[in-house]
Design a protein around this nucleic acid. Structure first.
Lengths: 246, 246
DNA sequence: AACATCTCTTAACCTAGATCATTGTGCAGC
DNA sequence: GCTGCACAATGATCTAGGTTAAGAGATGTT
């Protein structure tokens, strides 16, 4: 149906799931054969809304997205950030009503896959089901780390940790070359991810710069010394459950 | 193998999974037939440790437990609290290395079930697999809400929210009668769940009392007016994904 | 080129919650 | 009926981060 080359929109999804479980040729072919329609969305477009029944299951082909919940007083908390190759609605694949909102962070291309196709796939290919399960569990692990990050780390450690996580995930997906990356978020969005005000995010990121942990050019981020940065950010990648081989 | 009466240690697990998916007689029988050994643990016993490979999958028969992660500076964050009938290691059923610690909160009885038995069960009974998947996704949803709670709500709302969640979950499991419940945590543990100091938990809970949202007797908690409490705590139970019928 | 709109930056000030220290209280063990 | 100990309660003080406000760059638009 679609080619399996790296220009295949589902290429990054394949890569990601291969990192989660050993998949046979047939498994890979079955994933590649998922029917989809490509769609380009502007920044801040919603792909799922709290309270609504999720209808589709989208995979992020390019661009970035995030999950978000609102508090009663209007406060917004970003609970996850997604990079290309990640499925945006595994959480919603089985649940009947969405408990949070999903929005694009940048302009983004989505491969829209019918829920039924996903469900049939995991029913017929146990190895794919296993990989999907692993992916869901790894996401849950990231949520736990975020609870810790927001609950128990001070602002600068917290921000450093987030930057480390983002860098490592990008690199695991082959989207960063080790020499910095583009951070696709405003300082306000960073604040909403960290439980901080945009003002304090600004102060904090400048402090990280001042200490030499981070170099910035516009939204491009570089870590002059990864080891020091990682230690400062209290970051260990175990919770990402990225397989050594991947 | 074991009886299916309410004295069956797995009774509450059955109840929980039935709330997650429609299960046939055979499914229920297969769950009841899971081989297990009962074990009683003292408070603060570990059932899983970060960095170790989870070997068993335990179900909480009686008593309470929690999941916990440590920050580099020694800070502890409780990321989940478990009540009887909940499986403690679904998160670890497939992942190879645990990313957090699981400890009993009170003296607790566990049904220790071999991982292999669980895995065989979900492989052979799709409806059970579905229920387990729902349970995992519902837990992930609770993690997201906790990120919001810790990141964006002030101390009193945050504590009120936690108390509401606990009350609703107990009631859904048939463990509270609507007239209060025993909170099995010290104020220090509450603080570790909320990202607060024990001192401030004390002040905050007294404030909730003063405002008439909460009545306390030792560790017993009662809400004189549930609707007001719920509103004050910015609590909506959607994220718990408890089925209306259950 | 001028304008509008987002972001980012910075400064002054304030408050929620942390920290530190002490006292009170229930309960288990002897 | 003491003694010890974990937990709870409070007061005094401090600080990380919030709030408010105002300018400075960017970037895009007509």
């Amino acid at each position: 149906m679609q080619s399996n080359s790296s220009s295949d929109p589902l290429h990054l999804l394949l890569r990601k799931l291969q990192g989660r479980a050993r998949l046979e040729q047939e498994d890979l072919a079955a994933i590649s054969a998922l029917p989809y329609t490509l769609k380009t969305l502007e920044p801040q477009s919603y792909t799922a809304r709290e309270g609504e029944a999720p209808e589709v299951c989208a995979v992020l082909v390019s661009g970035f997205a995030y999950r978000q919940k609102l508090a009663g007083d209007g406060g917004r908390q970003i609970v996850a950030i997604h990079i290309p190759g990640e499925a945006l609605d595994l959480q919603n694949l089985f649940l009947e009503v969405s408990d949070h909102n999903v929005q694009t962070l940048t302009r983004a291309e989505l491969a829209i896959i019918p829920r039924a196709a996903w469900q049939a796939l995991v029913r017929t290919r146990p190895a794919v089901a296993h990989a999907v399960m692993m992916e869901i569990l790894a996401e849950a692990s990231i949520f736990r780390e975020w609870v810790l990050n927001v609950g128990r780390r001070d602002a600068s450690t917290r921000l450093a940790h987030l930057l480390c996580e983002f860098a490592v995930r990008l690199e695991a997906q082959g989207l960063a070359n080790g020499d910095g990356f583009e951070l696709p978020m405003t300082q306000e969005q960073l604040g909403d991810s960290l439980g901080l005000t945009p003002v304090h995010v600004n102060r904090t990121i400048k402090a990280l710069e001042g200490l030499g942990f981070v170099e910035r050019d516009r939204r491009r981020i570089r870590f002059p010394d990864w080891e020091r940065m990682r230690d400062f950010g209290d970051f260990t990648q175990r919770y990402l459950h990225i397989r050594a081989g991947a």
